[in-house]
Amino acid sequence: MKFSMKMKKQVFTSVLAVAVVFVSSAKMIDLVTEIPVPEISGTPVPIQLTNLEPLQQTAPVMQVPEGTVNLASGKPVTSSDDWPLIGDLEYITDGDKETGEGYYVELLPELQWVQIDLEAPSTIYGIWMWHFHAQRRAYHDVIIQVSDDPTFENGVTTVYNNDFDNSAGMGTGADLPYIETNFGKLVDARGVKGQYVRLYSDGNTTNDSNHYIEVEVFGATN
């Protein structure tokens, strides 16, 4: 039987736009992407964090310049875990946001990162990510950085950091931990420039592994 509450898919309609944007004069539009069907399974595990964001109930909203596209689509992904057993790093940019078995990549415990090479210097307005949404859980120390340096040793800009206790040792972040949902997490990257996007996490409230289903990086090639 089909799930009667199935979400109406929202499709990003500007994928054919020319990837050159003039921010100062560009028309601003709502950033929209395909929202996967909600699908929760398994026994719930209580989330014992005191500073959680309220549960996301609808798709997040953000305005971006017209012509913004998902620069991460199909782009290569590397990771601090060079050999995930479950899933493949390619899943992260394959456009498939469904949850459950076969749709996520699982990385080693402790602080791990994945890195997307946009293959060209870019201006980034939004980063939309889904770690794992088949269960209500929150990932620890979610940090997102952008750089033109693939080693992230120079010219690093942090656009999101919810490591409230600096357990990752990369500085205390002001962003709040959040509960994973099918709506994903949309981060305002405020037009940061860079070719590489690196996302960190350090386990989650259910287990100590790290997971990714999809990461979209919305922007324009410089």
Binding site: S4, E98, G100, G102
Partner: peptide, 16 residues
Amino acid sequence: RSLSKSQDITIRKASL
């Protein structure tokens, strides 16, 4: 348990 948590588990990837 809510409807969304009571759905069939499906595998759509043929390789699995």
